[in-house]
Design a protein around this nucleic acid. Sequence first.
DNA 1: GTATGATTAGTCAAATGTGACTAATAAACT
DNA 2: AGTTTATTAGTCACATTTGACTAATCATAC
Lengths: 190, 190
Amino acid sequence: MERQREPWDARALLLLGALTVRSQHGYQINDFIERCRVTDLKKPTAYALLDRLVAAGHISVQTEQEGNRPIRKVYTLTASGQSLFDDLLRENLATPDTGTGSGDIGLMFLDYLPRAEAVAYLRRRLDQLDRALADTAVVPPHGGHLTVNVALEHQLALRRADRDWLAALVERFEAESADTTLTSPRPSSV
Amino acid sequence: MERQREPWDARALLLLGALTVRSQHGYQINDFIERCRVTDLKKPTAYALLDRLVAAGHISVQTEQEGNRPIRKVYTLTASGQSLFDDLLRENLATPDTGTGSGDIGLMFLDYLPRAEAVAYLRRRLDQLDRALADTAVVPPHGGHLTVNVALEHQLALRRADRDWLAALVERFEAESADTTLTSPRPSSV
DNA sequence: GTATGATTAGTCAAATGTGACTAATAAACT
DNA sequence: AGTTTATTAGTCACATTTGACTAATCATAC
């Protein structure tokens, strides 16, 4: 059981998420990725990943042809793929983005989980961020006004901003759910 | 002239920068990279890059042995390497970090440039950040309180934080140079 | 006296990622 | 009538990156 190859987790989440919206063919998927501007996944990488997901049974393929247009391969999520998506989403939400360059993909699919559950995962992420910050905040007692640590200060500032943004989001959601007693998922058109 | 392979630019800057401090052997370099915690460069990658830089004449190698210890390869910056370092540093400072996951390496070596010059480059970077933000800030007129755009909001928040931090840094430096008329570089021990 | 861990130096197979390319149809523009 | 752009679907060779491994010496701890 060698789960958790960090690098492709987020990418797989994105592809599965795209198919959660509706079945799509390759062109549409790549278009979706480009349009949503959250990550830098390139076409060949996407196809390779799709192949792997098909091989693993998380996605099924049908070919179709419209009029005289080129034949398309339409990719559809299987039950196994749906459940993988759910797992990856939960894990992604609960874990701080380890800055792999890819944007925070899990957030795109926040609406696919009951709000209360999503907030619970985000809160877990927030805890981890706080703990990490507490660890690093002890470091920089630099003498005088040397600038050696500027790079570290920068990192720290960004991590703090990340933390603060998340804290605000969680608060916002909790305030919302105080009003509304609605907790059913409401997927959105993309 | 196919310069500007973005991905390895920053890594090369880090290696050359490490050698700018002083000549070092492989273990020391890898140790330095790990210790400074700014990037995720792994050992084999570092060696591969070192080889390329040696082949390109930016670094020279001598072997030495201390007592009965294993033989070391000591890497030293050549004149060409020094000049490459300067170029890469200037470019890195003047260009916004395109979020390749690697932290902002240029900032580590801020002290190696005359302060006035460094500030000028940082200001250029700031301008680019501002322009990029102005472009994206028009996007999100989301109806009601849908959460589709949460991922984008997140990205935007982080970019704004990056921008604000940089603006503060530039201001700080400009205030400093109003006091001191010192503009000579003062490298720091690492 | 032995075991553990730091110092030192890498290598290699395997995974991963991408620039550049091909191919064909249709719509839109000139 | 000819050219460009969008739609559609990939592939392939190449560069890059890394997990896991080997090997040897010396210091420290148990």
